[in-house]
Design a protein around this nucleic acid. Structure first.
Lengths: 201, 201
DNA sequence: GCAGGTTTGTTTAGAGCGTAAGCTTACGTT
DNA sequence: AACGTAAGCTTACGCTCTAAACAAACCTGC
């Protein structure tokens, strides 16, 4: 009972994989992706950089873990039996929220692909929940993946500081990106509906 | 006559901004984005790394120049008076070709936004060429931008090596990504057509 | 011809990075 | 108390970008 992995002695761990992932994300949020270093993550945890290597094989793996951590948040809990075409909209909006919650981490999601396990689990959960109607699983999968890449691409455009501005996230801009996103997402939605008509209208 | 920029003396230039951009792209194509360094670009030009700084303020600016160089290639020369909805398809296909011609550079396009000048010039050229029908300029612009971010997002997914594979660009995969792209692009196309019906059918 | 002036590429050097190797610390067990 | 083991620290190496001072190669005015 309450055996957190059998440990037969040894110095008690101050660090953990989860703490490291959280600290890395915090550094990214605070200082940006380019400023992230193993030394800085260690500093935030009150630890030397080399200590991190007891829990993470290298920097790339740490970043991959951050990616999976964020991707896991993109899981939407949909009401069962939602028409898959409508679920596209819910998924897109939710995924966008997750991305914009960590603007500096968006380029990371773009660069390092989500691990196959997490990706499959995510997609599988959606496909299992949603009402497929008469559409094949493959077609629905392609639709969700299309919404995902559109959403990521759009978020990249939004968070990418256009060189010439001094990092001021204008109020007016937010509105522009919002309507842009809605325009594109609803076009995808309409397009997939037209390709896969249902008898429910 | 034949005065290539008035130069009042000085050591003749072996380097040029253009040569540096080309060399940087060549390094990216050959060794990948992460392996790109000022030293390596210099080496490819038979020059020390510090020499590059006479023509480029720093590494970030050099990468930004590579981005603009690639983005400029995405300019499509469309037959005038093409319906803008059809031009969406041409643009998407052409942009994707440009991206997949330099797979290792795609993450760069994702991370460093295209400069406002190049972006505006690109979009302006399209908007000036295409037949707008009865659709407002703003709506057409949003449609093209949506296709652009979808295409970039999709290319990112394709070139991002899913961790677990050993960089083998499978034959079967290429087909999967092709149909995925066509599915998404045609959904966008249908969606925008439905939102902006024309009397020409 | 030859001394500036000017532009280009090189050298030197410093701060910061990721991380391999070995060491010390702190615990459970014997 | 001694041992085994796991966690964190120290040191060190090679690599990165780039600031600053220097050398080389050209044009122009004398």
């Amino acid at each position: 009972m309450s055996a957190p992995g059998q440990s037969r002695g040894g110095r008690p761990a101050v660090l953990s994989r989860e703490k490291i992932i959280a600290a890395a994300l915090a550094v990214i949020d605070a200082d940006g992706l380019e400023a992230l270093s193993m030394r800085k993550v260690g500093e935030r945890l009150g630890v030397e950089a080399m200590s991190l290597y007891r829990h993470v094989p290298n920097k790339a793996a740490m970043l991959a873990a951050v990616v999976d951590h964020l991707a896991a948040q993109a899981a939407v809990r949909l009401p069962a039996a939602t028409a898959w075409t409508d679920a596209l909209l819910d998924f897109g909006h939710h995924y966008r929220q997750v991305l914009l919650a960590h603007p500096a981490a968006v380029p990371l999601l773009a660069t390092h692909p989500v691990s196959p396990e997490v990706g499959a689990q995510l997609l599988g959960q959606i496909l299992a929940t949603v009402d497929l109607g008469e559409t094949s699983l493959e077609d629905v999968q392609l639709a969700f993946q299309s919404v995902a890449v559109f959403t990521l691409g759009h978020a990249l455009a939004q968070v990418g500081t256009p060189p010439g501005r001094r990092e001021a996230p204008q109020q007016a801009d937010a509105g522009y990106y919002d309507t842009w996103f809605e325009t594109g997402l609803s076009a995808l939605h309409r397009g997939f509906m037209a390709a896969h008509p249902t008898r429910h209208g």
